[in-house]
């Protein structure tokens, strides 16, 4: 039986008057890749950002309903947001390495969380870079600026930076949309490896990518979760006509 890691029940999100997420209920299994798809403005990125409270920064946001991570309410007043974001890491569309060395990029999170020991940090940096399948490419230039890396390498560095704080869940917001096909394939291979240890939730505009690498797919439309299920089932026999119309390119 699959363990659930995140559950939403009747989750609503409003940006002021705009009802951006409508009554979302979903159970996301652990150590699987879950893809969120849907046309622009459908709520998929909003939902992703709700998971590690990135929407807290936006004014006039109102959230109702329940969203739990390992049984704990993510929006409970006592929730420590820094701790939550340590457990639920995020990789963005555009690679965003800090303007510092490759080593310092990866060591940034652990240092912030109090790790000062050099040997320990070296270990974490190597382990994280290996985990993100970029160690061999950067091991001889760890002290060089991260900004000198290619886009694909920068994105894998950002994944390494996310892994360095030993998260439980990795959120990927269109993490390959700014990359060429070769870098994309590397990240996809990497995601397939990472799901042995992490739960990955990814927003993608690329339906082929969702079909290639995800185990489960959620289709959002106009703020609603239209359909959620096994990727193969969803792409071969969707249950809802709106899903079929979208994935076959009839609208969106």
């Amino acid at each position: 039986m699959e363990e659930l890691i995140l559950s939403a029940r009747g989750l609503n999100l409003y940006y002021g008057e705009n009802h951006a997420l409508k009554d979302i209920s979903i159970d996301i299994p652990e150590r699987r890749i879950t893809a969120l798809i849907g046309p622009s403005g459908c709520g998929k990125s909003t939902f992703l950002r709700t998971i590690n409270r990135m929407n807290d920064l936006i004014p006039n946001v109102k959230i109702t309903g329940s969203l739990t991570y390992r049984g704990q309410e993510i929006y409970a007043p006592e929730q420590d947001v820094t701790d939550l974001r340590k457990r639920i890491g995020m990789v963005f569309q555009k690679p965003n390495p800090f303007p510092m060395s490759i080593y310092d990029n990866v060591a940034y999170g652990p240092r912030t969380h109090g790790t000062r020991n050099k040997v320990k940090l070296d270990e974490i940096v190597e382990e994280s870079l290996r985990g993100a399948a970029i160690w061999d490419e950067v091991k001889d230039r760890l002290k060089k600026s991260a900004l000198g890396l290619s886009g694909g390498q920068q994105q894998r560095l950002c994944i390494a930076r996310a892994l360095a704080v030993k998260p439980d869940v990795l959120l990927m917001d269109e993490a390959t949309s700014a990359l060429d096909p070769i870098s994309t394939a590397k990240i996809e291979d990497l995601a397939a490896e990472l799901k042995n240890d992490y739960t990955i939730i990814m927003v993608t505009h690329n339906m082929q990518q969702a079909a290639r690498i995800s185990d489960n797919t959620a289709f959002f439309l106009l703020g609603e979760l239209v359909e959620f299920g096994e990727t193969e089932q969803m792409f071969s026999m969707p249950q809802d006509k709106r899903t079929e119309d979208y994935i076959t390119g009839r609208f969106g």
């Binding site: 082929q208 079909a211 290639r212 990727t231 193969e232 792409f235 071969s236």
Partner: peptide
């Protein structure tokens, strides 16, 4: 084969 076509294009 259908799975390969569907998932791997």
């Amino acid at each position: 084969c259908m799975k390969l076509l569907l998932r791997q294009q």
